[in-house]
Design a protein around this nucleic acid. Structure first.
Length: 874
RNA sequence: GCGCGGGUGGCGAAAUUGGUAGACGCGCUGGAUUUAGGUUCCAGUGCCGAAAGGUAUGCGGGUUCGACUCCCGCCCCGCGCACCA
């Protein structure tokens, strides 16, 4: 055995060994082993691996390797979410074709992933930009289109009037186009939508079955779907001699008698009608078109409105109610109009105050008096009121009033109870090039015709010129000029592509059969995806959109029926979900004369500390001059605080990087990068290596452990088996890897402090070192592979089972109890492990500590927590 | 603005079901070994205090024999908001 731990060498050897023995291949026929499908969210091939990837895939690899050791048939695949905007941006910046750029990035990042030793079945790798993949997406599209689950309607987008192009929300900075600097406008264009709202009820109910998901994520999805039960009601009106109804939705029909105005969205037909003879209003509506479509911006902007000069009639009293146009009313939610009750709604209140609109109280709260001055405080009690100033409804509580009012509205055909979702249908059209073409042909005679199966895939051409103004496909007649598949007349192919979220909504199923060129799925899906992916791992930022879309797709595919004899018999795609936290790092900067910050990479900075270890300034290594210390922020290009995985792997080895990532924080919390922490992880592995080296150097011990052991060895062996139980629980149930590592470190600390030179000690040392190697194997597999082979010549750690705790070794003769008097810790006492409650109580009262702190007073009560603590209350 | 998280030593964190607050690691201080150290080993390390003891989990209140943990109110930080992925 080599004396020195040489990570580069042993990692190369271990990876070669795994390749030669096909250790990472996932085979369907597993001889009765249960399957375990462990999936990490696939990366966008942006160029290089970043630390967030390393963290994500290390967590996945730890769980994969642990379950393989526990006897599962493990599948851990990897692929590339390869369509997306950055490839087009790179094309604009460097003139490289998106397809080439993407392929190059994939090749580089794959090498990086392989250098980390992940147990990935590379035979299943695919990229979503390959026609062999996206053809099935197009195939599915045509079916969903025929079933009406995909349909066309107008949607609102960000429009850059200078570049004449649609912008993503990300490309709108402070209301302006990121390249042109032009003020962005809202524009309505025809788009295809997926009818996710048809599944709203099931997507909501399904959340209750996802016991393996973090409660946080389920809550976020529940609120996103946003089911509310309310009343859809109409305000009748006459306009241009015709009568009409202005519909609104409200969850507070009990406040209907307090309505003092109605607000409609700028895009509402009634607003447009009123603006025809009102230039001021027309100008306001035009002003409302200014700015982007992102909801965060809409919700934080100043609430503005303008009266239309037009009134509708109250559905119960027939009184006129003025109609306003409000920039805060969303056309895309509900009816695009809201009834305003300023007395009982915060937003309406602010709006009414601003424009001097009447405020009519119709709910009284017992013991709280309504006043405009202290309205906010009064409003806090909103849930406890009854109706007043509401005629026949006076005295009714909220539920009763809603019921009575809904009934009266129904009798007049002016309203009905309705369930409303916040969830909107999913617009999937993108006016961009680097995406999956939408398989539709537009024919003047036949309308929108789906491309027939035999003409699929609609292949995305790769020889294109990206200009940043509109989609290049629209300028390529060789792409869009075609014949109508139905009537044969000249037609135009759709040039929009699909939202890249579509590819990531079903990729996890395709890993089961990536090589099938005859069908989207085959029977292998039912093997690997039975009960879904067993463990899914990815960033918390995907808590809503991606995870909701993937759940939606699973239900769509289930309901699409059998395909080539295979049906997707699955309600939910991911049984267990682990949402990983961000990787953050310190930021450093220098300011130039204009106060502009130049961000400096942490790798180029040295932080100085004072005598107590507090940071006392930082200097640039290159020139020794001071730099400013910023906060901890997510690793990013803009802050130049990214740490290169490549550099670290070369310097310390993959195992050190993996160990640090798992040890520094629990997986769902953000992880702060620390050079010193990496150094510490490396130190631990060197120490482990040295410990095994010293042990092996004395010759491997022979024979079994004697029946009876001296106390020190018995204690150490108990510690060993406690550690096995704890680490197994941390991996398998708690998924808290930092404490698993800590437990092993603790064990090695005790090992170092125990004299193991006697023959029995040598045998125990062997047991401990073999066990530790295997306990750490999921996290640090390379060093584990090497050390295990030294400890057990000829053995292969990659095929070993996870250690099992020995119940006999865990038994304890005596237990130490903590002793509290009056709830304060005063001491402790030791008593036989089989002592009963009465004996424990007597022993506690007899201790000198108890006598002292009770000071002669009688015990009022003695609380005994079995195995832990006694509290004497005086 | 709305929804969801988080806040514990100098730092990352632990405390699994309301029961020893700070395991484990980093850093720091002192010492030993070494020609040397970005090596290794030993000891110490929440704060106040000589000690006894007191005090401490963002802030203010509450429940309990006992609260980092449960309840009410507040402050700060992060994530998401439908065209970033």
């Amino acid at each position: 055995m080599q004396e020195k731990y040489a990570p580069a060498e042993i990692e190369r050897a271990a990876q070669e060994h795994w390749r030669e023995t096909s250790a990472d291949r996932a085979i369907e026929d597993a001889g009765g082993k249960p399957k375990y499908y462990c999936l990490s969210m696939f990366p966008y091939p942006s160029g290089k691996l970043h630390m967030g990837h390393v963290r994500n895939y290390t967590i996945g690899d730890v769980l994969s390797r642990y379950h393989r050791m526990k006897g599962f048939n493990v599948l851990q695949p990897m692929g590339w979410d390869a369509f997306g905007m950055p490839a087009e941006n790179a094309a604009l910046a460097n003139g490289v074709a998106p397809a080439d750029w993407t392929a190059r990035n994939i090749a580089y990042m794959k090498k990086q992933l392989q250098s980390l030793g992940f147990s990935i079945d590379w035979a299943r790798e695919f990229a979503t930009c390959a026609p062999e993949y996206y053809r099935w997406e197009q195939w599915l599209f045509t079916r969903l289109f025929r079933k009406g689950l995909i349909y066309k309607k107008l949607g609102t987008v960000n429009w850059d009037p200078v570049d004449q192009t649609v912008l993503a929300n990300e490309q709108v900075v402070d209301g302006r186009g990121w390249r042109s600097g032009a003020l962005v406008e809202k524009r309505e264009i025809p788009m295809y939508y997926m009818r996710i709202t048809a599944y709203a009820e099931e997507l909501l109910a399904g959340l209750d079955t996802l016991a393996g998901w973090p409660e946080q994520v389920r809550l976020m999805q529940r609120n996103w779907i946003g089911k509310s039960i309310g009343v859809r009601l109409a305000f009748p009106y006459e306009l241009d001699g015709k009568s009409g109804k202005l519909w609104v939705f409200t969850t507070r029909a009990d406040t209907l008698m307090g309505v003092t105005f109605v607000a409609v969205a700028a895009e509402h037909p009634l607003a447009a009608a009123a603006a025809r003879n009102n230039p001021g209003l027309a100008a306001f509506i035009e002003e409302c078109k200014q700015g982007g479509v992102a909801e965060a911006d809409l919700a934080t902007m100043e609430k503005k409105g303008m009266p239309t000069g037009f009134s509708v009639r109250h559905p119960l009293t027939n009184e006129p109610v003025p109609v306003w146009v409000g920039n805060y009313v969303l056309m895309s939610y509900g009816e695009g109009a809201v009834m305003a009750v300023p007395a009982h709604d915060e937003r309406d209140f602010a709006f009414a105050q601003k424009y001097g609109l009447p405020i009519r109280q119709v709910i009284a709260v017992k013991g709280a008096s309504f006043s405009l001055e202290s309205w906010q405080a009064w409003y806090a009690d909103k849930d406890r009121g009854v109706c007043i100033h509401s005629g026949k409804y006076d005295g009714l509580d909220r539920e009763g009033a809603v019921e009575a009012i809904a009934a009266d509205l129904a009798a007049r055909a002016l309203g009905e109870r309705q369930i409303q979702f916040r969830l909107r249908d999913w617009g999937i059209s993108r006016q961009r090039y680097w995406g999956c073409p939408i398989p539709i042909v537009h024919c003047e005679t036949c309308g929108d015709v789906p491309v027939p199966d035999e003409d699929l895939p609609v292949v995305l051409p790769e020889n294109v010129v990206i200009t940043g103004a509109g989609s290049p496909l629209a300028r390529m007649p060789e792409f869009h000029a075609c014949a109508c598949p139905r009537c044969g007349k000249p037609a135009r192919r759709e040039t929009d592509t699909m939202d890249t979220f579509v590819e990531s909504s079903w990729y996890f199923l395709r890993y089961a059969c990536p090589d099938n060129d005859r069908a989207m799925f085959d029977a292998r899906v039912n093997y690997w995806c039975q009960n879904g992916v067993d463990q899914y791992i990815g960033g918390i930022e995907h808590a809503i959109l991606h995870l909701l879309y993937a759940r939606f797709f699973t239900k769509l595919l289930r309901d699409t029926g059998e395909v080539d004899g295979v049906g997707i018999a699955l309600d939910e795609p991911f049984g267990n979900l682990l949402t990983q936290g961000m990787v953050v790092a310190p930021t450093f900067y220098r300011e130039d004369g204009d106060g502009r910050k130049e961000w400096i990479n942490p790798a180029d900075v040295e932080v100085r500390t004072d005598a107590r270890g507090r940071p006392a300034g930082a200097v640039l290594k290159a020139d020794g001059g001071p730099v400013m210390i910023g906060g901890m922020e997510k690793m990013s290009k803009s802050r130049n605080n990214g740490i290169e995985p490549k550099t670290l792997i070369e310097r310390y080895g993959a195992d050190t990087v993996r160990l640090f990532m798992m040890f520094a924080a629990p997986p769902d919390q953000s992880l702060e990068w620390s050079d010193a922490g990496v150094e510490g992880a490396s130190r631990f592995l060197r120490r482990l290596w040295r410990t095994v080296f010293e042990h092996v150097g004395k010759g491997l011990p022979e024979g079994a452990l004697p029946e009876t052991l001296p106390a020190s060895l018995k204690d150490l062996r108990r510690k060993l088996h406690q550690t096995i139980a704890r680490v197994g629980d941390d991996y398998g149930r708690r998924r808290q890897f930092n404490t698993a590592v800590a437990a092993v470190m603790e064990l090695l600390n005790v090992y170092d402090r125990t004299d193991l030179d006697a023959p029995a000690g040598r045998v125990l040392a062997q047991e401990i070192l073999e066990t530790v190697t295997l306990l750490l194997f999921p996290i640090t597999p390379h060093i584990g592979q090497a050390l295990y082979a030294e400890l057990k010549p000829g053995a292969d750690a990659a095929r070993a089972s996870f250690p099992e705790a020995d119940a006999a070794a865990l038994a304890q003769d005596t237990i130490e109890f903590m002793l509290q008097v009056g709830g304060r810790l005063r001491g402790s006492f030791t008593i036989s492990a089989d002592a009963g409650r009465a004996a424990i109580e007597t022993a506690a009262l007899a201790t000198g500590v108890a006598q002292k702190f009770m000071a002669g007073k009688p015990a009022k009560k003695v609380v005994v927590v079995p195995g832990k603590l006694v509290n004497i209350v005086v």
